[in-house]
Amino acid sequence: MTVEDARFGLKRCVTLPGPLPLDGGGTLTPVEVAYETYGTLNADGSNAVLICHALTMDQHVASPSPRTGKPGWWTSMVGPGRPIDTDRFCVVCVNVLGSCMGSSGPASVDPATGAPLGMAFPVITIRDMVRAQALLLDHLGIANLAAVIGGSMGGMQALSWAATFPERVRACVVIASTARHTAQNIAFHEVGRQAIMADPRWNGGDYYRGEPPAAGLAVARMAAHITYLSEAGLTEKFGRRLQARDAKTFGFDADFQVESYLRHQGLSFVDRFDANSYLYITRAMDYFDLAEEHGGRLAEAFRASRARFCIVSFDTDWLYPTPESRAIVHALNAAGAPTSFVELSSPYGHDAFLLHSPELERVVGGFLRAGA
């Protein structure tokens, strides 16, 4: 299968024979990979761009999700004439390993039992996700990437691509991301995982024939969602305003608008995401430490790279704050990699990279055009 005839928003899923070696030991065989392509691969295969998605996103980067019916999660950035221009580039977006949107994960069926793998699925890493993406690109006949682009966990994958397959990447765009998870990052994820595993319906991960641990997953999402926002943004949007009432109830209903908002976020999330996938992907993010993979020195991760780098942070992002981006920039400078860096101003915190941002669009579009 090739992508020479790919049309905008073409959805595909392929089973690759593998084997895929895993950082935790062993291999994964076969490997299911769900992906979408946008645009057309040129004759010499030089215009491929890989977009890597964040924790709870998917491969539907610029076309409606068949699960929710909502528009793609980065339609402001990807499309004809947009910063990641599908009239110029063949864009590939891959559902990460461990997810629940078509790629191999805990909800995948074990052919030996006919039941979902659940917690028998191996623990995976960001680098494992990248290796699975490389297998897909090999299958599609894409040897090199004009660029790999990602925000948040997608940025971790982009960095891992540059370090793991330096000969395959000509440009790398990392937005609102980090080269390793801090203790605070791990702590927030652990709260979410414990909320899921404390739900009686989790049943050790074996819930696929019954009711999922919706309450635990909703709480996990609520806790995580707070980290995606800024205090200023929450104050501006909600303040201490009450929700559809004139006075406090002196009970535990959602008196405040912000409480109602978080409950809605939690409940809507359980309709589109698998609890076990949440466990696996957050663990992969917590294990991510690019310096550790290269002898403890982050600069060593980029020694073999010949890519141009663009690093972007947001001033109100306290999940992956600007100092985390600066640490990446310093390592890239030490490795002699051509690097651009900008901190953008936004009231929206970490989520700013997902929202319409003319400044971000100018930065990304300009960086890609400069490499033409």
Rank of each mutant, 00 (worst) to 15 (best):
T2W: 10
V3L: 14
E4F: 12
F8R: 12
F8P: 00
F8Q: 07
C13K: 14
T15S: 13
T15D: 02
V31W: 03
A34V: 05
G39M: 06
T40H: 15
L41V: 13
S46W: 08
S46P: 14
N47K: 05
N47E: 02
N47H: 04
H53M: 11
L55H: 11
Q59W: 05
V61N: 09
A62S: 11
S63R: 12
T68Q: 07
G69M: 02
G69F: 09
K70F: 13
P71G: 08
W74V: 02
W74T: 02
W74C: 01
T75M: 04
M77W: 03
P80I: 09
G81A: 07
P83A: 01
P83N: 03
I84K: 05
I84C: 07
D85C: 01
F89L: 10
V91W: 04
G98K: 03
G98N: 02
S99L: 02
G102M: 08
A107K: 05
S108T: 13
S108V: 06
D110S: 12
D110Y: 11
A115D: 11
P116K: 08
M119H: 13
I124E: 05
M129Y: 07
A134W: 03
L137F: 12
H139E: 15
H139Q: 14
H139Y: 15
L140E: 03
I142G: 03
A146V: 01
A146G: 03
A146E: 00
A147S: 00
A147V: 04
V148W: 06
G150Y: 07
G151F: 00
G151A: 06
S152L: 02
M153G: 00
G154F: 05
Q157E: 10
W161R: 08
A162H: 10
P166F: 09
E167R: 12
E167A: 12
R168A: 08
A171R: 00
A176N: 00
A176W: 02
S177Y: 01
S177H: 08
A179L: 11
T182E: 06
N185I: 13
A187P: 05
F188Y: 11
R193E: 00
W202G: 06
W202F: 15
E211I: 01
P212A: 13
P213D: 02
A215K: 13
L217K: 04
A220E: 01
A220V: 02
S230A: 11
E231H: 14
L234P: 00
F250K: 14
F252Y: 14
A254V: 11
F256D: 04
L262N: 08
H264A: 13
G266D: 09
G266V: 09
L267S: 15
N276D: 14
S277E: 04
T282Q: 09
T282K: 08
Y287T: 15
E293M: 14
A304L: 14
C310W: 06
F314R: 01
W318T: 14
P321Q: 10
P323H: 03
P323G: 00
S325K: 06
I328S: 01
V329M: 10
H330E: 15
L332T: 04
A335S: 11
A337V: 11
V342W: 01
E343F: 06
S345M: 08
Y348Q: 04
G349R: 03
D351P: 01
L355G: 02
S357W: 01
R362Y: 07
V363G: 05
V363W: 00
G366S: 00
R369K: 12
A372F: 07
A372Q: 12
